[in-house]
């Protein structure tokens, strides 16, 4: 079937298999920041923004993204870069495999929540698993980033 969508501002039209998942569509177009960590919609690694909302690209048919706008880390621009710097300064990325999904959800959170508390941050990001960091360094990076941005 034919779909037409926008990925990182670029229009893509393609004939796809009906069963194709959005994650595989994105990876096949070179957006390999999008990672798969599970098959049960539990890890958050594959998070991308669809019309500004964070979703799990592993659990969405590419067909469903027809007519929508998708943003992956490759297209997240300055915002992602700014937050990445705080992550790097804490050594919070570790193996880095969960970083793209986390960064996308942090961007979504920043847009949605005004001056979130620590508890609200944890709540919003609870669907992003990380096995390396123990989450503390991520929290330090997020708090510093949000502070910086609000100045």
């Amino acid at each position: 079937m034919k779909i037409s969508l926008t990925v990182n501002g670029r229009k893509i039209q393609e004939d796809i298999q009906e069963s194709m998942l959005l994650i595989d569509f994105l990876r096949s177009h070179g957006y390999t920041s999008v990672k798969r960590g599970c098959e049960t919609s539990n890890c958050g690694l594959c998070t991308v923004l669809m019309d500004d909302h964070p979703i799990l690209s592993c659990s969405m048919l590419a067909a469903r993204a027809d007519g929508h706008s998708i943003v992956t880390l490759e297209g997240a621009g300055k915002e992602a870069e700014a937050f990445a710097e705080f992550m790097a300064k804490e050594g919070a990325e570790q193996c880095g495999f969960c970083s793209p999904g986390l960064i996308m959800n942090v961007i979504a959170m920043k847009k949605e929540l005004k001056n979130p508390t620590k508890e609200e941050i944890k709540q919003y990001l609870s669907g992003n698993l990380c096995r390396c960091s123990g989450y503390m360094s991520q929290m330090r990076a997020i708090e510093k980033y949000l502070q910086e941005e609000s100045v």
């Binding site: 919609s41 539990n42 958050g44 998070t47 909302h53 964070p54 979703i55 799990l56 659990s59 969405m60 959800n105 979504a108 959170m109 919003y124 990001l125 609870s126 669907g127 992003n128």
Partner: peptide, 10 residues
Amino acid sequence: DIVGVQFKNM
């Protein structure tokens, strides 16, 4: 507390 915000968005 159902998984996470991405899951709840779907």
